[in-house]
């Protein structure tokens, strides 16, 4: 047993199990949380029947979706159509690798962790475009085109906003970044935090930036033709990305796992779900932007602001 615990093989297995567990439980919990929070914002109760206050409602929904027939409509691209959901889904799993849940609880502490995280997240866009293109549906195609334009635009402010953090922390290693936060970077980089959250919501394709799947215009956008488990995979990827974005915000701006009294992992999840709650709250409070307004907001406001923030950060660091 002792030999086994130390082996690389054992570590890999353990990591996969751990990531899958966090992934599954988060997907179930986040969906339930979203439904409950939105319900209370909207003067209703939300799921109440299955389990305590509907706690296992999302599990029941998942089982229902697994049981559904997998429909491949006529005229779709036979190879790309089934592949696309997985190309959206696997990057989310891979991104878990660098998330530092606590000092020791991390799959792999890469020294370019931050770069890795944001590079992997870009792959999902290819999957979304693939889904839109392969569906052979005009609404899907419009959604996919919108998604590409939006992702390219909003990657830039995200990277620019975290550059400020990198400059202060002087490392791309996530454990280092957390270790240097004796004062939260939220205090040192408030503008960067706001830019990050806005751009991250846009990356997640959530209201008010959900133009790729704008349901009142494009029916369901890029996943119009998907149903059953394939749709569920898109759905799970969305909620996993929400968790990942929040986890990254926690790591970069809210001091990661650090906190008094409670164990580090608990602190990490409290902070992460606070951000998740914020993202949900924003979704249910605002209408959707128009695509051209979305682009204008990014190129004419967010990116200049992020550049200015970067400039000021560099100056201040040089002076003091």
């Amino acid at each position: 047993m002792a030999a086994l615990t130390g082996s690389i093989f054992f570590n890999i297995i353990l990591s996969i199990i751990g990531v899958m567990a966090v992934f599954t439980i988060n997907a179930l919990f986040a969906v339930w949380l979203e439904r409950k929070v939105s319900a209370h914002i909207q003067l209703r109760l939300g799921p109440m029947e299955v389990g305590f206050h509907g706690a296992i409602q999302s599990a029941a929904d998942g089982i229902k979706l697994i049981g559904k027939e997998i429909i491949t409509p006529q005229g779709v691209d036979k190879k790309l159509f089934p592949l696309a959901p997985y190309l959206v889904f696997f990057p989310s799993l891979l991104m878990f690798v660098v998330i530092p849940f606590s000092e020791k609880l991390q799959v792999q502490d890469l020294n370019i962790g931050l770069l890795y995280f944001f590079s992997i997240s870009c792959i999902a866009t290819i999957g979304i475009f693939m889904a839109g293109w392969a569906s052979n549906n005009k609404y899907s195609l419009m959604g996919a085109v919108r998604s590409i334009a939006q992702s390219i635009a909003y990657e830039i402010p995200i990277i620019l906003s975290i550059l400020g953090v990198i400059i202060i922390a002087q490392s791309l290693k996530l454990s280092d970044i957390v270790a240097r936060q004796d004062i939260w970077f939220l205090v040192l980089q408030p503008v960067a935090f706001i830019i990050y959250i806005i751009a991250a919501i846009a990356e997640l394709n959530r209201t008010p930036f959900d133009i790729p799947e704008a349901e009142s215009e494009l029916v369901a956008g890029f996943h119009t033709e998907y149903s059953g488990m394939r749709f569920a995979i898109f759905f799970m990827a969305e909620y996993t990305n929400m968790f990942l974005v929040a986890a990254m915000a926690t790591t970069l701006f809210l001091g990661g796992w650090r906190g008094p009294i409670l164990p580090p992992v608990v602190w990490f999840f409290i902070k992460t779900y606070a951000i998740v709650f914020l993202i949900i709250w924003v979704r249910w409070a605002f209408p959707r932007l128009r695509p051209d307004q979305l682009m204008n907001f990014c190129w004419k406001f967010l990116i200049p602001l992020a550049l200015l923030n970067l400039l000021v950060t560099t100056f201040v660091l040089k002076l003091f």
């Binding site: 909207q42 003067l43 959900d210 349901e215 009142s216 249910w284 409070a285 605002f286 209408p287």
Partner: peptide, 16 residues
């Protein structure tokens, strides 16, 4: 109208 614009919450507020 707000549902068309992508906001779900006002719909249920007025429906109450």
């Amino acid at each position: 109208f707000l549902l068309d614009l992508g906001a779900f919450t006002p719909f249920l507020w007025v429906f109450d």
